[in-house]
Computed example of a mutant assay.
Amino acid sequence: MNRNRCLHVLTIIAIVGIALNLRPVIAAIGPLLDMIEVETGLSHTQSSLLTTLPVFVMGLCALFARQIAGLFTERSGVILGITLIFVACGTRFVATSGLSLLSSAVLAGVGIALAQTLLPAFIKRNYPNEAGRVFALYTTGIMAGAAIAASSSAMFAERSGWPFALSIWAIPGLLALMLWLWATKSEVSLKAKPSIQTKRQNFWRNRRAWELMLFFGVGTAAYTLVLAWLPPYYTNLGWQPSAAGFLLGGLTLAEVIAGLAVSAWIGHFNDRRQPLFAALFLLIAGLACLILAPLKLALLASLLLGFGIGALFPLSLILTLDHIHDPTEAGMLTAFVQGGGYIIASLMPLLAGVMRDQFADLTQAWVAMIIGAILLLILCLRFSPSSYKNIHS
C-alpha cells in the first residue's frame, strides 16, 4: 500500500474517530436521567434541557457556518471542536450541579457544531468520487458512539457513580484529537473558502433548502426523542436503568447497522426517495409498537426505530449533498440544513419533558412523532432527482 493510500485510509479512520465522539456527551444522559434528577433536583422539563441545549446550540452555530469557515481552517475548527467536547465531558466529573451540567451541555454543543459544520466540506473536497460512502461512514460513526455510550453509561454509574459515567467520554475525545492531528498534518494551511468559480448562494431565500432543512429536522427529532426519553420511559414501566440503557444501546446498534447498509447500497439508488420511504415506514412501525405494546414489543420497537432512524439520518444528509457539487457550497448547504434542522430537533425532547411533567407519561410524545413522520412521507414525494436543480433557483 503506497503512502498516499495509507494517508487516505488513515484520514477516513480519523473522520470516523471524530464522529464517534459527537454524541456520547448527549447519549450517556438518557439511561442516567432518573438518577440525575434525584440528585440535582431537576424536573423532567429541566432535565430535558441536557439534550435540548446541545442540539439547539449545534443548530445555532451551524447557521453561522460561513462565518465559522472564514475563521478556521477545516483542520483547526475540528481541533477546537473536539477539544471543547473533551473539556465538557471532563468537567462533569467534578461539576455535578444542575447548572454545571447544563453549562457543560452548551459547551459540548458548540464543540459538536464546529466539527460537524466543517467536516462535510472536508469530506466533499477530499473524496469527491466517494463522498456518499464516506459520509455514510461518518454518520454511522456518530450513531456508533451513541450506541456505546447509551449501552454502557448505566453500568459505569452502578460501579462508580453517574459523574464518572458522564466524564469517562473525555478519554476517547482525547484519542480522537490525537488521531486527527496526525492524519491531517498536510492540511495545516488549507482554508475552507468558496471556489472562485462558484457564486455563493443565499439559502435563506431558497425553498428547496428550507424543505431539506425541515426534512432533516423532523427526522432528527425522532433521534433526539428516543435518545433522551426511551430509557426513562422504560424505567417508569419498571425496568432497571441498566436494562433500559441496553435497550437504547440495541436501538443505536441497529442504527449503526442501518448506516452501514446505507453506505454499502446507496450507490444503487439514484432516486433517494425509495430508501427514504422504507426508513420512514420502519420509524412509524417502531413508534406504533411503543404505543400499543411497549413491554411485549420492546425489542421489536427498538429494532424498528433503530433501523428507521439509522437509515434516515445519513440519507437526509446524502440527499442534501446530492443537490450541489462544489465542496464548499455543499458544506454550506449542509450547515444550513443541519442548523435549522437541529434547532427543530432540539424542541422534541423539551416537548416530551413538558408532556411527562403534565401527564406522567410519554405516549403523547410518540404520537406527535408519528404525525411528524407522516408529514415527512408527504414531503419526500418532492425529492425526485430531476428536482435537485431547484436548489439553484
Rank of each mutant, 00 (worst) to 15 (best):
G111E: 09
R208H: 12
L63H: 08
L351S: 06
D271T: 13
V16G: 07
G81F: 01
G308I: 06
W180D: 02
T363V: 12
Y127D: 13
S76E: 09
C289F: 10
G219L: 02
I82W: 00
P31F: 08
R23Q: 03
S263C: 13
L10I: 07
A209K: 01
F359Q: 02
G341P: 02
S100F: 07
L276E: 02
P385L: 11
A258W: 10
N236P: 02
F122P: 02
G70A: 11
A335E: 11
V87D: 06
P314F: 06
I123C: 04
L287C: 13
P120Y: 05
R356E: 07
I171C: 05
G173Q: 01
S97V: 01
I291Q: 08
G250R: 12
F313D: 09
A365V: 01
R23I: 01
T40G: 07
L230C: 11
L362V: 00
T91P: 01
L101H: 03
S160R: 07
A27K: 00
L375P: 04
A115V: 04
I371G: 11
A261Q: 12
A88G: 15
A244D: 03
R205W: 11
L333H: 15
I36G: 01
G339Y: 09
A170V: 01
R205K: 15
S386E: 15
E329P: 00
F156R: 03
L20F: 01
P385Q: 10
G219I: 02
R207C: 06
W182C: 14
T363C: 05
S160L: 12
V55R: 00
S242F: 13
V226N: 10
